[in-house]
Amino acid sequence: MMQWLPEDVSPYGGSIDALFYFIYYITAAAFILVTALMIIFLYQYRRDDSRRAVYTHGHTGLELVWTIIPALVFIGLGLASKSIWEEVKLNVPETDVEIRVTGKQFNWEVLYPGPDKEFETDDDYQVDNDIHVPVGKPVRVFLGSKDVIHSLFMPNLRFKQDMLPGRQIEAWFQANKAGTYEVPCAELCGFGHSGMKGTLYVDTPEDYAAWYDKRWPPAETNGGDASAAETTEEVLAGGAVMDAETMPEPEAEPAATEEEAESAMEGAADSAAQEATE
């Protein structure tokens, strides 16, 4: 069973896997104990009309034992989980690699901020299903969604985070081994949910630099104008990679605009509601 945990290439995956094994040993021991006792009792105390069953209504001491021992085990597990959870969720390392991944039916829309490290500027690069990150560096990722709830799942990174429409969630990951990894969607998102996946390219420093320089040639740092031709190249090279512009608009868009139009009449109330989602 164990060898099927996908290969872990993340900094904290080791802790998660260790906790998994820890729980595995505890539950396996509990399972064996209970099952063995059950089988022994079933055999030992099978029907025998020459004797009577033991007439007892319980044993407070024993019951206390099997209340307190599981309680202690669970508290221990809780504490162990808490520290690893905080390591994963709360101790976000400093980094200068940032990307934005937005789910939409049924693709990941990946946005790179470009050399100016700012999103929504001219040198941004947007592509579908194609995540390039450097190996061994923490990556801050901003997750959102255009329509329904998706969940970005990177099994090898022990990473999974739902993406909510109308909200941006900040998370981080780090891949310590170069290679390509599949990035499926883990939350039911509609008829195309199955098969919604992207590719995570964990590049060696050289490969990453090559990819980066190709995207943003060092000569023209603000080369937003050059990107059109290169996008085509990227499409051809990447095979399955689709350009964002060629994608059909998600179906949610017209509905949302309609609602906005409708609700525009509701002046103050509406603008308040709109702001709430930002």
């Binding site: 802790s15 998660i16 729980i23 597990l77 162990a80 959870w85 969940s151």
Partner: peptide, 22 residues
């Protein structure tokens, strides 16, 4: 017993990151 014990994996938040929705 099996269902209860397998629930412990999900109760543990870090492990649930991986096995949630699987």
């Amino acid at each position: 017993v099996i269902g209860g014990l397998s629930g412990i994996y999900m109760a543990s938040t870090p492990v649930d990151i991986f096995i949630h929705d699987t």
